[in-house]
Nucleic acid binder design. Sequence first.
DNA 1: GAGTACGAAATCGTATACGAAAACTATGAC
DNA 2: GTCATAGTTTTCGTATACGATTTCGTACTC
Lengths: 218, 218
Amino acid sequence: MTEAAVESKSQQAYAAVKARIVEGTYTPGYRLVLAKIAEDLGFSVVPVREAIRRLEAEGLVKFERNVGATVSGIDPTEYLYTMQTLSIVEGAATALSAPLIDSVAIARARAVNEEMRECLEHFDPVRFTALNQDFHSVLFEHCPNPHILDLVHRGWNRLASLRSSTFRFVPGRAQESVREHEALLQLIENAADADTIEKAARQHRAATLDAYLAQAKP
Amino acid sequence: MTEAAVESKSQQAYAAVKARIVEGTYTPGYRLVLAKIAEDLGFSVVPVREAIRRLEAEGLVKFERNVGATVSGIDPTEYLYTMQTLSIVEGAATALSAPLIDSVAIARARAVNEEMRECLEHFDPVRFTALNQDFHSVLFEHCPNPHILDLVHRGWNRLASLRSSTFRFVPGRAQESVREHEALLQLIENAADADTIEKAARQHRAATLDAYLAQAKP
DNA sequence: GAGTACGAAATCGTATACGAAAACTATGAC
DNA sequence: GTCATAGTTTTCGTATACGATTTCGTACTC
């Protein structure tokens, strides 16, 4: 079992840079200099370049010809686009998954949601965010269409790069979110029709966007 | 006006290979050898490799470590995933665009659809397919969310690589499609509510998938 | 004749190198 | 003090080169 299956360097570079973006080491606007990253990782620039372009395709970085790459993010318009798209694909993913979710998974999701409620009391927004992803991951884990699941994950990644920005935290929204989770679980338990579930899931995401917009406007 | 704005070679390579896939020169399963393509284009392998990886990210080619790239496609399961996803994103794109479509665009779309009907009489499936894209492009051209539009285009590209396969042509489906287009235009003209339009657009794509499945099963 | 082992060829993955474009800096004119 | 300009530096884009891995063909064994 000498099983190597070493990742290619470009793959490693991809994972490394992505991690730094998602965890917030590289914040939006950060200039990604190929040579510098290559040196950090001990690779040459070629695999690093490949990694960066892949991240560009996923929307995590912005690449400008002969200038270089920067961590993308920020722009409220972009946030709107991403949330709107997520609303749609998450709605679809939930509706497609719902009939395949068994009572065990429901119980698991409910436990996660309960923990989220506790996070609110102890004011732990970081853990709350992580649990929120867990919650939805449980719902989606049997999604029959991997393409849609992939789109969901891409959206999450984009949002992750904005984590510490002002976008995420709107007063009162978190409490509402926990309530919506429970309502969603009940719809799934009761085998509500796909349309109803899709609409509820879509609304769940849309409400977060609306809360942000309402706060941002005035 | 010496306006140069030369495309980068990797960009040219991307466009060239993509075109060959979409137009059917490289059919699914075709082995894309970096060195060979590079020689054809007169570039070195580096930009070609970059282009191929970009196409991989879009799902047009499949890349295997230390082995190489092949034009992807075929698999009925993959077709199902793609069509299902397209159904969702096209539905959303149509619903979002509908309020922004003016009567001029409607007339244009209707003219295209009329031409599609004529194609059926002269049995010109190639032109029919092209016009079909034109039709939907008119509907989407003012789509307020570029992310969603991008997803639509990605789906189209995937399907394009399957063009000459059995997937596309199901007896009678084309006639139905033209009728559905007209119905869709009327919904938009009458400013039907977003839900109705979304459902109709979604169904339009789903029906093609269903027709294929019904034919494939028995 | 089928299957295995080994060697040659093909192809990929990555490093290094260098020309080209952009960004920065310093200098000078007004 | 501001703007324009020329020179320097940084960083990217691509070519070339070579080691690593896989594939293919051939010979050999049973």
